[in-house]
Design a protein around this nucleic acid. Structure first.
Lengths: 222, 222
DNA sequence: CATTAGTTTACGGAAACCCGTAAGGCTATC
DNA sequence: GATAGCCTTACGGGTTTCCGTAAACTAATG
């Protein structure tokens, strides 16, 4: 059983509800933070005291407000936390159920579970905690199981993402070519860019570039 | 003070947290639902019994799942609820802080308050409830006050929205022209469509159509 | 009815995008 | 080092979009 849990979630009602759910099920020590920076500080401090957290439950998106923050997203917090305390188990609790982001979380950030905010998230959180604690198996909410399938065929890379972002920023293809050349990227000719866009249009079944950007934005890829 | 409150929110942890906050402050009768359809049924039933709800607190977006639903969004629930019980006070509690949607909620759906899910939403909910109960003033979360300003200059109409949706669906301008003609819309020539797109590009400071669609999607207009 | 103002449509050239084909370059293998 | 396969780049012509200008239409006014 987890002894010391940190909850990182900015929306007060969610944080409140989440803590209630946890307390109802486990006699753990639970701390909450509303900012990623604070979460990292707490993790560091606990590590220093020799009483480290053994589980981090975090959201992905945090609202901007008046405060200047170093870590502005769950991804950044996870990366920072892992480099401080590599063994820390991490459960992401988020509304964002876009295949690409979830895939990234498991592949790059080595999170242990992804629980989607939803009608049954309280039971899923508990399930996830049990599995993550006892085994090295990863956990995802049942309704996201289809994503495992999507993930397999999701073969778009960093460069694709960059290109899509340039397009969505209103750059023309010659402009993008220049930008990529200056960034020292390979295959930066207008021709290659055309080809890449074409590949993406086929992949996402888009009629034209506008449709493509619309689609990838809906999917949360950019 | 509100005597009978209905909370319509699909994510269990939020619903749980919200109810705790309400109970801590008011001795009201509180019911919760995870589906808009159920919320409407509860409102109808209470009305029939002669013990109607006097406040509805609802989210805007609800997750799809296995259940077939008639009302799939908060907007639809609000419209249905208002037609059943015009006097019902409504507070929207949502993460979606896009000017256009909020403007619509106040203008078309005559909601009484909009509280943004955030770090201080528990106090804001209480504030909103006090104001909405005692007066006919509308309430919005303080951090959204800038939206009142944005709202004033937000002069895009239904036809603009339709056009933007067609564009984001990958239609060409001649195709859109045909579609609008068939729908019996005025100013449906390719020329007029060009002109309208151009107006929108200027308005949203977009370099090209891709950029335009990207921008309006970010703003939650479509 | 003539004039004016505002809106819608038409048109044409320039720019950007789309799409197929082909040439050039790199690597691996025999 | 010749060959084949793969990736990148180049090029050309067709389509779509972009943008300015002008014509046609509508409605209101004197």
């Amino acid at each position: 059983m987890f002894k010391k849990i940190l909850v990182s979630e900015d929306i007060d009602s969610i944080s409140f509800g989440l803590v209630s759910i946890l307390q109802k099920n486990y006699p753990s020590e639970i701390r909450t933070t509303k900012y990623c920076d604070d979460a990292l500080l707490k993790i560091k401090a606990a590590l220093h005291e020799g009483k480290p957290y053994d589980l981090l439950i975090t959201d992905l998106s945090f609202k901007d407000d008046y405060r200047d923050v170093k870590l502005s997203s769950g991804e950044e917090l996870i990366e920072a936390a892992k480099s401080e305390q590599p063994g820390l188990k991490i459960i992401v609790y988020s509304i964002d159920d876009k295949p690409y982001r979830i895939k990234n979380l498991f592949d790059k950030h080595k999170i242990n579970a992804f629980v989607a905010k939803g009608r049954d998230s309280s039971t899923e959180i508990i399930e996830a905690m049990d599995i993550v604690h006892d085994t090295d198996t990863i956990y995802t909410s049942p309704q996201l199981s289809h994503i495992a399938r999507d993930m397999a065929i999701l073969e778009i890379d960093e460069d694709d993402i960059i290109l899509l972002k340039y397009l969505s920023d209103g750059r023309t293809q010659p402009e993008i070519s220049e930008l990529l050349k200056n960034a020292g990227k390979a295959s930066s000719s207008t021709s290659s860019i055309e080809k890449r866009i074409n590949k993406l249009k086929i992949y996402f079944k888009a009629n034209n570039a506008i449709h493509l950007i619309s689609t990838v934005k809906d999917m949360g890829i950019i």
